[in-house]
Amino acid sequence: MKTKVLADYIIKELNKAINTLPKIDKNSDIEVLHEFRVSIRKSRSLIKLFFKKEKTIEQELKEIVTQTNTQRELDIFLISLENKKKSQNLYSKIKLQRDKAYDKICSEEFRNKSKNKLLNIIQKILNFEYFYTNKSLIKTAHKQYKESQKRFKSIDSSFSSKQLHKIRIAFKQSHYALQFIQDSKLKNENKKIRRCKKIQNYFGKIQDLTNQLDSLKAIYENEAKNKKYLKNIKKREEKLTKAKKKLLK
């Protein structure tokens, strides 16, 4: 039987993002922004995988979520510094950056533009003429998962951070596709989803440390010989090396 269950699922996620938009604030729980980003990323990922011709919609969703990247990265950085007395000065600097970044996405301009874009995308999806059988949806999700696994097994020590990031994105796409299959009760995919999450955590650690190194270099741009800066850089570079080694095991 042909179905529009996928389109309905994506619309539900986009409505969730719209409802979350007004709740995003620098004083709100960081999970609020995270939930907004997940809804957008999940929708974008599913469109990219199942509706390959809809590049305009996929690009519009990318533009929305990209504007929240810095805020999320700084949220993660702050969490890594919590309860560390020796890092209070750095914490204050990151917090200041983070609050300024949040001001941009808490503005009425960002909220209204994003909401209107999302509503427009929902209308386009409602007019989709795509129809999939449940079997073909499962087949596409499984194919993506197998390709992600294959790429993961090909990783070696010569892979750059950029190459690793691409494989991480492939696993996110697999995760979201399998989660859709699971949530829609088309097939039990718990085992594969757990596998995706485990691998994503490895990649996530590498990405977080890479982002933190970039933030540190930006903060101490004019203080290259600052001892605290050099110590923080060294600490994260060591952690990054360990995280990459763990990925290769």
Rank of each mutant, 00 (worst) to 15 (best):
L46V: 07
K85M: 09
Q71C: 10
I181V: 14
N226K: 06
K205V: 04
N69K: 15
L46G: 08
Y145A: 10
L6F: 03
K242P: 00
T140F: 09
K191A: 15
V65N: 08
H165Q: 14
S107R: 12
V65G: 01
T20S: 03
K245H: 06
L240G: 06
F131P: 00
R195H: 13
L230G: 05
D8M: 09
R195K: 14
I206D: 05
Y145F: 15
S45R: 09
A243Y: 01
L46Q: 10
L21R: 01
F128S: 15
T133D: 09
A218Q: 11
I94A: 07
L209F: 07
S87V: 00
I47S: 10
D103L: 15
N15C: 06
I10R: 01
I181W: 08
K93A: 06
C196W: 02
L81W: 03
I193P: 00
R41F: 06
N190L: 14
T68S: 11
I11M: 04
A177T: 02
K228W: 07
V5A: 11
L240I: 04
F171R: 05
K198F: 13
K249F: 05
D208W: 00
T68R: 06
F50E: 03
V65M: 13
G204P: 00
R98W: 09
I193S: 08
L213S: 02
S154E: 14
R72N: 12
L230K: 12
F159E: 10
F180V: 04
I122F: 05
E221H: 10
K135W: 06
T68Y: 01
Q212L: 04
R236S: 03
L81N: 07
L81M: 13
K245W: 01
L74M: 13
D214T: 08
L33G: 01
F51N: 05
K197W: 02
D103V: 02
E63P: 00
N69Y: 15
N201I: 02
K55V: 12
S148H: 10
L240H: 09
V38E: 14
R72A: 14
R72P: 00
E129Q: 12
K55D: 12
P22N: 08
C106L: 08
K135I: 01
K227C: 03
I125P: 04
N226D: 15
N89K: 13
V65K: 09
K245P: 00
L14I: 09
V32Y: 03
Q149G: 07
K62A: 11
F180D: 07
K115G: 01
Y102T: 02
T3F: 02
L33S: 03
K104R: 13
K239L: 15
S161T: 03
D103K: 15
L21Y: 01
N211G: 05
E223W: 01
